[in-house]
C-alpha cells in the first residue's frame, strides 16, 4: 500500500508539473481557438524561456529575474516569428501552418544548439525551503509554481471576459469573419494572442528550468504531454486545458509512484479513452472551419 507521505508529495509534484503543462497548453489552445493554427513552435518559446532563465540566473544569481527575462525574450521572439512567418500563412489550411510551425520548432532548436551547445545546463532552485503539509515536507518552490499558474488562469479569464480585446478574441474564436466585418483589425488580435501564448510558454520554461536540466531537446521532451493535455482538454478551451493539465500532471506523478513506466503510458491511455468517447476532447469545439 502506498505511503501517505509519498502520496502527498506525489500530489504536489503532479500539481506543479500540471501547472507547467497548463502554462504551455494554454498558448496552444488560445492560438487554435482564434487563429485556427496549431502552433508547435510554442515548445520553442518554452525552451527559449528556460535558456534565458539559465543565462540570466548565471550572471545575476537570481532565478526569478531570469524567469522574468525568459518570459520577455520568449514574448519578443514569438512576436518576431508571428510577424515574419505567421502573418503570411494565416489564411492557409491548418495542416499547412502546423508543418510550418514544426519547421520553426526544429530550426529554433538548431539555433539554441548553436548558441548554448548540446550540454544540459542546470538552473539552481531559488528557494530550498520546505513547508510541512499534513506531516510531509513539501518544497515551497513547487507550490509557488502552482500559485503562479492559477494566477495566470485568473488573469487570462479576466482578460477574456472583462477587457474589450479579450471579448473580441472570444468573439473571434466563434467567427473571425464577423469580427473583421465589424471593422476590428483581427490581425492585431492574432498578434496579441500569439504574444500572450509565446510569453506564457516562456514563463513555463523559466519556471520549469530549476526542476529539470535545461537542454536543447527539452521542448520535445514535454511535447507529448502538452499535446495530451491539449487533446484531452479540447483545443480552444481554457477551462478544459486547466482541468486536463492537472489531470495529466496527477496521472504522471501518481502513476510513476505505482509503477514507473505508467508515468508515460497512462496519460496516453486516458487520451485514447477520451478521444474514443469525445473525438474533440472534454471541452473541444466541434467547429473546425471558420
Amino acid at each position: 500500500m502506498m505511503d501517505g507521505q509519498l502520496l502527498i508529495s506525489g500530489v504536489i509534484f503532479g500539481l506543479s508539473i500540471g501547472s507547467i503543462f497548463f502554462l504551455m497548453a494554454i498558448g496552444l489552445s488560445l492560438c487554435f481557438g482564434l487563429m485556427r493554427i496549431i502552433s508547435l513552435d510554442q515548445l520553442l518559446y518554452y525552451s527559449v524561456g528556460a535558456y534565458i532563465t539559465y543565462s540570466i540566473s548565471l550572471v545575476t544569481g537570481s532565478m526569478w529575474l531570469g524567469a522574468l527575462g525568459g518570459l520577455v525574450v520568449a514574448g519578443v521572439v514569438s512576436f518576431a516569428v508571428e510577424r515574419l512567418i505567421y502573418m503570411r500563412i494565416y489564411e492557409r489550411d491548418i495542416t499547412f501552418t502546423m508543418i510550418t510551425s514544426f519547421g520553426i520548432l526544429i530550426g529554433g532548436v538548431g539555433v539554441i544548439k548553436f548558441i548554448w551547445g548540446l550540454v544540459p545546463r542546470p538552473v539552481p532552485i531559488p528557494m530550498v525551503t520546505q513547508i510541512n503539509i499534513l506531516g510531509t515536507d513539501v518544497p515551497v518552490y513547487r507550490l509557488i509554481v502552482v500559485v503562479i499558474s492559477l494566477l495566470v488562469y485568473a488573469g487570462i479569464w479576466l482578460f477574456l471576459n472583462r477587457t474589450i480585446i479579450g471579448k473580441a478574441i472570444r468573439a473571434g474564436t466563434e467567427n473571425v469573419e464577423h469580427v473583421e466585418g465589424l471593422g476590428i483589425n483581427v490581425y492585431r488580435l492574432f498578434t496579441i494572442t500569439f504574444i500572450i501564448a509565446g510569453t506564457l510558454s516562456g514563463l513555463a520554461g523559466g519556471l520549469h528550468a530549476p526542476l529539470i536540466m535545461v537542454d536543447p531537446q527539452m521542448g520535445l521532451h514535454v511535447l507529448a504531454f502538452v499535446f495530451m493535455v491539449v487533446i484531452i482538454g479540447g483545443l480552444g478551451s481554457i477551462k478544459g486545458t486547466l482541468i486536463s493539465a492537472f489531470l495529466v500532471g496527477q496521472v504522471v506523478s501518481i502513476g510513476s509512484l505505482i509503477y514507473a513506466p505508467l508515468a508515460q503510458m497512462a496519460p496516453f491511455a486516458i487520451m485514447l479513452l477520451i478521444l474514443l468517447i469525445r473525438p474533440t476532447g472534454l471541452y473541444g469545439s466541434k467547429l473546425l472551419k471558420r
Binding site: 508543418i99 510550418t100 519547421g103 520553426i104 530550426g107 532548436v109 538548431g110 539555433v111
Partner: peptide, 16 residues
Amino acid sequence: GNWELLIGFLLVFIML
C-alpha cells in the same frame, strides 16, 4: 554538424 537548423529553415522556406 547542426542539421536541425537547416531542416527547420528549409521546411519553413519551402512552405512560404
